[in-house]
Each structure stands twice: as structure tokens, then as C-alpha cells.
């Protein structure tokens, strides 16, 4: 059994984070923007796990637990906001949300 090099392990979260950034920048639908944020948070958690595995410590998995909690809280608030926006605006286009007033 050979060891996968640390640098090769880090390629995966970098790619995933870049894809998440691309999603946020390219998509205008709010649901897709939220999904891309999830992808980015997940990539950050993956880096913690990789670092924890690199040094054989449990701290990485604990930080992943905190990222998971943050993602759950962020998704619940974000989706509630999306439902509110949908009730007031005809579309979920994030460019249309600048018409909100008061």
C-alpha cells in the first residue's frame, strides 16, 4: 500500500472550491448560488479532514463537525430567505433582488 502524497490530496478540495466559486459567479438563480456555497463549504471541510489525516490527529474531524454545523445553519436561513423572496418577487433571479425596498 503506497501513500498518496499530501499535495495530490489537496488538489481535490482546490478543484471543488474553484467549481463552487464558478457556480456563484456564473449562475443567477438563488437556489444554485446556495448550492455552490455548499460545495465551497464542503471543500473547506475536506481540507480539514485531509490535514487531520496528514498529522493523524482528531482535530481535523472536529473542525469538520463545526463546518457541518455552520453549513446546516446557513442552509436553513438561506432557504427561508429564498422562500420569502419568492413570495415577493416573480423570479429567483439574484439580479432582481436589488428591487427590494423597505
Amino acid at each position: 500500500m503506497t501513500t498518496v502524497p499530501f499535495g495530490q490530496l489537496l488538489i481535490l478540495p482546490v478543484l471543488l472550491f474553484a467549481l463552487g466559486v464558478l457556480g456563484v459567479l456564473a449562475r443567477r438563480n438563488l437556489v444554485f448560488i446556495l448550492m455552490s456555497i455548499e460545495i465551497m463549504l464542503n471543500a473547506a471541510g475536506l481540507v480539514f479532514i485531509i490535514a487531520g489525516a496528514r498529522w493523524g490527529q482528531a482535530d481535523g474531524q472536529i473542525m469538520f463537525l463545526l463546518v457541518l454545523t455552520l453549513a446546516a445553519a446557513e442552509v436553513s436561513i438561506g432557504l427561508a430567505l429564498i422562500i420569502r423572496i419568492r413570495a415577493r418577487l416573480p423570479s429567483l433571479d439574484s439580479d432582481a433582488a436589488n428591487l427590494l425596498q423597505g
Binding site: 500500500m1 503506497t2 501513500t3 498518496v4 490530496l9 487531520g52 489525516a53 496528514r54 493523524g56 490527529q57 482528531a58 482535530d59 481535523g60 474531524q61 472536529i62 463537525l65
Partner: peptide, 20 residues
């Protein structure tokens, strides 16, 4: 199987309810 040591749930739990 990437050649790293396994950190099982027991180690995580001990650290989580100890220093963290």
C-alpha cells in the same frame, strides 16, 4: 487506504468533549 493512520470515532469523541 491512502496510507494514513485511522482516526476513529472514539478519538474524535474524546477530543470533542474534552479540549473542544
Amino acid at each position: 487506504n491512502t496510507g494514513r493512520a485511522v482516526v476513529d470515532a472514539r478519538a474524535v469523541g474524546l477530543a470533542l468533549y474534552g479540549p473542544y
